[in-house]
Lab assay of single mutants.
Amino acid sequence: LYHVLGLDKNATSDDIKKSYRKLALKYHPDKNPDNPEAADKFKEINNAHAILTDATKRNIYD
């Protein structure tokens, strides 16, 4: 999941948040209406963010 956000395992919560915002804006379906690959990437980014920002889920993942 870290690679989805372009981060390593030592990433801080701020790093995760910044990377998520940058990538979410880039791949958001509203910005890429005719690109199904961007929509899939956006879903991956959201999933990675949801797990890595939840301390319990992140510990389980790590």
Results as ranks from 00 to 15, higher is better:
residue 59 N to A: 15
residue 34 D to Y: 06
residue 9 K to D: 12
residue 58 R to H: 07
residue 16 I to Q: 04
residue 60 I to R: 14
residue 47 N to D: 09
residue 56 T to C: 12
residue 20 Y to R: 10
residue 40 D to Q: 12
residue 31 K to G: 06
residue 39 A to Y: 14
residue 45 I to Y: 05
residue 54 D to A: 09
residue 30 D to L: 12
residue 44 E to T: 03
residue 27 Y to S: 09
residue 54 D to I: 00
residue 53 T to F: 03
residue 4 V to M: 12
residue 18 K to L: 10
residue 57 K to S: 06
residue 56 T to R: 08
residue 32 N to W: 09
residue 48 A to Q: 00
residue 23 L to M: 09
residue 14 D to V: 06
residue 23 L to G: 07
residue 56 T to A: 08
residue 30 D to F: 00
residue 30 D to G: 10
residue 9 K to E: 13
residue 31 K to Q: 12
residue 59 N to I: 12
residue 55 A to W: 05
residue 39 A to D: 13
residue 7 L to F: 01
residue 35 N to V: 08
residue 37 E to Y: 08
residue 29 P to H: 03
residue 5 L to W: 00
residue 24 A to Q: 11
residue 49 H to W: 10
residue 27 Y to C: 08
residue 11 A to V: 01
residue 4 V to A: 13
residue 33 P to R: 14
residue 5 L to P: 08
residue 31 K to H: 09
residue 40 D to G: 11
residue 52 L to H: 01
residue 14 D to K: 09
residue 16 I to Y: 01
residue 35 N to F: 06
residue 43 K to V: 06
residue 38 A to N: 07
residue 16 I to S: 04
residue 61 Y to V: 13
residue 6 G to Y: 01
residue 59 N to L: 10
residue 45 I to D: 06
residue 41 K to V: 07
residue 13 S to F: 07
residue 53 T to E: 07
residue 45 I to N: 05
residue 44 E to V: 08
residue 25 L to E: 15
residue 54 D to R: 05
residue 15 D to S: 05
residue 59 N to Q: 13
residue 27 Y to P: 02
residue 44 E to G: 03
residue 59 N to P: 14
residue 2 Y to Q: 06
residue 23 L to Q: 06
residue 44 E to N: 09
residue 45 I to K: 08
residue 16 I to T: 02
residue 1 L to V: 06
residue 52 L to F: 07
residue 61 Y to L: 11
residue 6 G to A: 03
residue 41 K to H: 15
residue 4 V to H: 05
residue 15 D to Q: 10
residue 33 P to Q: 12
residue 60 I to L: 14
residue 54 D to E: 07
residue 7 L to C: 10
residue 14 D to C: 02
residue 62 D to T: 00
residue 29 P to A: 12
residue 10 N to I: 01
residue 29 P to V: 05
residue 57 K to Y: 00
residue 11 A to G: 03
residue 22 K to T: 14
residue 4 V to F: 05
residue 43 K to F: 15
residue 56 T to H: 08
residue 6 G to W: 00
residue 33 P to Y: 06
residue 17 K to W: 09
residue 29 P to K: 08
residue 15 D to M: 06
residue 60 I to W: 13
residue 11 A to E: 00
residue 31 K to R: 15
residue 12 T to Q: 02
residue 59 N to C: 13
residue 33 P to N: 05
residue 58 R to L: 04
residue 3 H to F: 08
residue 57 K to E: 13
residue 32 N to H: 13
residue 49 H to V: 11
residue 35 N to E: 08
residue 26 K to L: 12
residue 50 A to F: 02
residue 14 D to N: 10
residue 15 D to P: 01
residue 11 A to N: 10
residue 34 D to H: 05
residue 32 N to S: 07
residue 46 N to I: 09
residue 40 D to W: 14
residue 49 H to P: 04
residue 7 L to V: 11
residue 53 T to N: 14
residue 59 N to R: 11
residue 35 N to M: 04
residue 24 A to H: 07
residue 3 H to Q: 11
residue 2 Y to C: 01
residue 62 D to L: 03
residue 17 K to H: 14
residue 2 Y to K: 01
residue 46 N to P: 01
residue 11 A to D: 03
residue 40 D to V: 15
residue 62 D to C: 00
residue 48 A to V: 01
residue 46 N to Q: 12
residue 55 A to Y: 04
residue 12 T to D: 03
residue 7 L to K: 05
residue 37 E to C: 09
residue 11 A to W: 00
residue 13 S to Q: 05
residue 18 K to N: 06
residue 25 L to N: 12
residue 14 D to M: 05
residue 43 K to G: 11
residue 49 H to Q: 10
residue 1 L to W: 06
residue 30 D to Q: 11
residue 46 N to W: 01
residue 54 D to S: 15
residue 29 P to T: 07
residue 60 I to T: 14
residue 40 D to N: 07
residue 42 F to N: 08
residue 10 N to V: 01
residue 6 G to S: 02
residue 55 A to F: 06
residue 23 L to F: 03
residue 61 Y to Q: 14
residue 17 K to F: 03
residue 25 L to C: 11
residue 52 L to Q: 02
residue 35 N to Q: 08
residue 53 T to C: 10
residue 62 D to N: 03
residue 34 D to V: 02
residue 52 L to D: 05
residue 60 I to E: 15
residue 59 N to Y: 03
residue 26 K to Y: 02
residue 26 K to S: 09
residue 30 D to E: 13
residue 8 D to V: 01
residue 42 F to Q: 08
residue 8 D to Y: 04
residue 34 D to S: 05
residue 45 I to S: 03
residue 4 V to S: 08
